[in-house]
């Protein structure tokens, strides 16, 4: 599970104070909120990418507040895919396995397996330049899932995609993330994305996280 208690941080002039958040084991939480409310900052803080002024982050009951991002075991999918431009698709999906010293043959097997699952096995020898937005997000997802993380953080991963590709990605995410039983925290602006993917809804508003019902949201949607 993901648990944040009394979190405070500062990013330039922006501050978050005393934020609490809780996502139970195996839930797919969607975090919504208006632009500039600090959703990405909160996600970065959970991943260890932003220094905290106060508070605690616990993953699966373990306090990871002082841990390096590398030691938190979170699969992170950023907004634009954040491809490693100098690596082939295969190499960047294999990176989490290489740094964990997984044997090359086993790593190759796992990379091919996840690439097949996400429909990008034909791209393994290509470099990111020239990949479509949907392909980039599939690669970013494969890279984040290949080391079997128990927690996944996704920062508006579908925001730059067209409607058709987004529909495809809903299915890909639902199958690959939820079927693994990973706990996910997914930041999005899109109410339809939240309804399609989320099992619980969280709204960041006025510096606080409030749960909301995705079903009620769906009923009130046009």
């Amino acid at each position: 599970m993901i648990e944040v208690r009394d979190l405070s941080l500062r990013a330039g002039a922006f501050t978050l104070e005393g934020v609490d958040l809780s996502v139970a084991q195996g839930e797919y939480a969607v975090l919504v909120g208006r632009t500039g409310t600090g959703k990405t900052c909160l996600l970065d803080a959970v991943c260890g990418l932003r220094p905290l002024r106060g508070g605690v982050v616990r993953l699966r009951g373990v306090d990871v507040t002082a841990l390096d991002p590398a030691d938190r075991g979170i699969g992170y999918v950023p907004q634009d895919g954040a491809m490693f431009a100098a690596m082939t698709v295969g190499d960047q999906i294999a990176l989490p396995l290489r740094v964990r010293r997984v044997a090359a043959s086993e790593a190759r097997e796992q990379v091919v397996g996840i690439a097949r699952e996400l429909g990008i096995d034909a791209l393994l020898e290509r470099r990111p330049r020239g990949l479509s937005g949907g392909e980039r997000q599939r690669v970013a997802l494969a890279r984040a899932l290949v080391f079997q993380p128990a927690v996944l953080c996704l920062d508006e991963p579908l925001s730059a995609l067209d409607e058709e590709t987004r529909e495809e990605m809903y299915e890909v995410i639902l199958h690959s993330v939820r079927d693994r039983g990973a706990t996910a925290l997914h930041v999005t602006h899109s109410p339809s994305e939240a309804r399609r993917l989320g099992s619980i809804g969280l709204r960041l508003e006025g510096g606080q996280v409030h749960p909301f019902s995705l079903k009620a949201e769906a009923r009130s949607a046009p």
Binding site: D44, C47, G48, L49, D68, P69, A70, R72, I74, G75, Y76, P78, D80, A82, M83, F84, A85, L95, P96, V99, R100, A140, R143, A144, F147, C153
Partner: peptide, 17 residues
């Protein structure tokens, strides 16, 4: 962009890696 480097750190890389 610093983002790919940050992503690499979440994937298990040290700062140096």
């Amino acid at each position: 962009s610093a983002r790919p480097e940050q992503v690499a750190r979440t994937l298990g890389c040290s700062r140096g890696q």
